[in-house]
Structures are given as structure tokens and as C-alpha cells.
Design a protein around this nucleic acid. Structure first.
Lengths: 191, 191
DNA sequence: GTCTATATAATGATAGAC
DNA sequence: GTCTATCATTATATAGAC
């Protein structure tokens, strides 16, 4: 059983706010209001706002690794595993519609800020990329596995961006269907 | 002949900085340094920073309308016109690699800020959407023209996001090739 | 039209009481 | 561990001289 410490609450609230409002726009006051602590108390747990960001990124990295492992453990066929990835757009459609993809939007923001932690944020992309690449290899696409992984990542990013701009949930479902067909077409070519 | 006024210089510098650094992170000091004027002088030309943003968005809208008209005037075939749209990823690859897509990243930022001008930023997406939709109709895809327009927009957004995260120019060229093949495949189906 | 000087509010961060 | 009080800095914005 894991104790829920104040530090955990801070990271959890910051994670949510960074996603919904962006990193730079989220102030200590915002997080303090959410966690119900004073602004001064942050500096007992973290040295700076950047350190909170790093904690959030590390938390997301851990959660992502865990999710990827689970998809792999629960599905023996690589195509089913890849479908798990595609399916998250459906599962998270409500938040995607409002805030886009948490991976892509944080990466974009930190890249523009030229922030020291942008590499850490992009590591989230790399986790998915490497994992998808491995699944495409298992699917018999050894030669272009990484290209397919990047292609699928890009497709999902585009869906999130447009769904958020137009607040269009039907568009997500539509594109997920197209992506599943695309995946099925790949399978047939290499089975 | 158009006179280049101080106001124009401000909008031009702000346009560039908003793209490279983001809207919120760009301060009057940044713009003032670029235009070589004092901070106080801004308020002769604009009432607020938000008003500069609106001017930037209107400038981008005008430039986009003009580019779309030109693509239409210079190409009689709808497929060639759509290829012009796809081609901008190649033409702007250097900046995309560094800062992503100016349309998508501004839309994403203003959406997260819940900024009053987010609708204006999304109107940029709508310009492309409507124009692409018309081209797909001319291509004989009357039934799913808007769906194809959204699909192509999303594909290009995803390419820009990933190219920026990984600073990968080859990826842009690769995806542009795939998109051109996709477009050619559509043509054959409906010619 | 452009400047300097300044007002005002918010930010990240620190010091020290409890 | 959490608080209040405060500092230093930066931000947008205003007033008024030139």
C-alpha cells in the first residue's frame, strides 16, 4: 500500500494543471489552491518549479512504461498490442477533445520555451516509438518498423491536435477506425 | 507600394516571436528589442498585448487566404492544388523542425490558456479545411470531402509535431512522400 | 510618435516562527 | 512539515515630457 504524501499530491495536481493549462501558465498559486497548502510549503518538497516539472515527467514516464508492459502482457499478438495504443484515443477522448495529447502538447511547449526538461518530455515520445517499433518488427515489418512507429505516432498526434481545435469527438472515432483499417491492411501484407 | 510603419514592424516581430517562443512567453521587452523601440511606445499603437495577438492572427489569416487563392489560380487541377498544401511542409521544413506548425502550436497554446482569441486562431484551421474540402469535392469526392480535408490536416499536424520533437527533417520528406502517394491513390479511385 | 519614469500586480523564491 | 511574511524580479500598463 502506498502512502499518499503531500509531495505526491503536489505532483498529481501539477500533472493535471500542466496538462490542462500548460506548464508556464500554471503558477504556484494554482497548484497551492488545488492541493490546499500554502505557497511557501512547496519549497520544503521541491527546490524550484522546474523540479516539480521533472517529477511530473518522471511520473508520466513511469506510468507509460507500466501501461506498455501491461499491453504487452495482456496481448500475445503484436497487432492487438498496437490496437491498444490506438484505442487510448477513444478511452481519453473527453480530455483529448479539451486539452489535446498530454505528450505532444508538453513536448511542444517545452520545445518553444527551450526548457531544460524538453529532452525528458520527448523521452515520452521515445518510449512509445521504441515500443511500437518492436511490435511492428514482430508483425514482420523488420525493415520499416521504426518508420511505421513514427507514422502511427504522427497520425495520433494529428488526431489529438485537430480534435482539440474543433472540439470534435466524432473525428476521433472516425480516425481511429481509419487507423485500425490501416493496421489490418499491414497485417495482411505480411502475414 | 506599402509603407513599412512601426505598427507593421511590431506585428511582424510579434508574429515571429509568438511562433518561435510562444505567445505567453513572449514579453513586450522581447518585441521591443527586436523592433528597437521602447516598451512604452507599444501603447501608442496597441491597447494591450492581446490586441497585438489579434493583429498577428489577422495578418496570418490574410496571408493564408492569399496563399490559397494563389494555389488555386496557378493550378487548374484540384490534385495539384492539394499537392501545394502538402508541399509547404517541405518548403518550411527548417522552421517546422525547430518550432512545429505555426497554426497548430498557436491553436494548442491559446486553447490551453482558454484565451479570448483562440477562436481566431482556429479560424486559420478552418480556412485550410474549407479550401481543402472544396478541392476534394472537385476531385469527385463529394460525399467525404470534409472528412478527407480533416484527415489531411491531421496528417500534416502530426508530421509537424513529431518532426519538431525529434528535430527530424528526413521524417518530413518521408511522410510527404507517403501523403502524395495517398493523394494519387485517391485520384485513381475517382477519376 | 517616441521616449523616460512609474504604477500595479503577479511571479518564483527565501527566512523564520510554530 | 506547514505556515506567514517578505524579497527580488518581471510583467503589463499608464502618465506625461519631448
Amino acid at each position: 500500500m502506498s502512502e499518499s504524501t503531500t509531495r505526491d499530491h503536489i505532483v498529481e495536481a501539477a500533472d493535471k494543471l500542466f496538462y490542462e493549462q500548460g506548464y508556464e501558465h500554471t503558477s504556484f498559486t494554482h497548484i497551492a489552491d488545488a492541493v490546499r497548502i500554502s505557497r511557501g510549503n512547496f519549497y520544503y518538497h521541491f527546490k524550484s518549479k522546474d523540479e516539480i516539472l521533472d517529477a511530473v515527467i518522471n511520473e508520466r514516464l513511469a506510468n507509460t512504461r507500466s501501461a506498455l508492459e501491461q499491453w504487452e502482457a495482456e496481448n500475445s499478438k503484436p497487432a492487438d498490442r498496437i490496437r491498444c495504443f490506438i484505442q487510448i484515443m477513444i478511452n481519453n477522448r473527453d480530455k483529448i477533445k479539451l486539452y489535446g495529447c498530454p505528450v505532444g502538447t508538453l513536448s511542444t511547449e517545452l520545445t518553444k520555451l527551450n526548457h531544460a526538461s524538453k529532452a525528458g518530455a520527448n523521452e515520452l515520445f521515445s518510449l512509445y516509438r521504441t515500443w511500437l517499433c518492436r511490435q511492428f518488427m514482430l508483425l514482420g515489418r523488420k525493415a520499416d518498423a521504426d518508420q511505421l512507429a513514427m507514422h502511427l505516432l504522427a497520425r495520433s498526434q494529428g488526431v489529438a491536435t485537430l480534435a482539440s481545435a474543433f472540439h470534435d469527438e466524432a473525428f476521433i472515432r472516425q480516425e481511429v477506425r481509419i487507423l485500425c483499417d490501416w493496421l489490418a491492411g499491414l497485417k495482411e501484407k505480411n502475414s
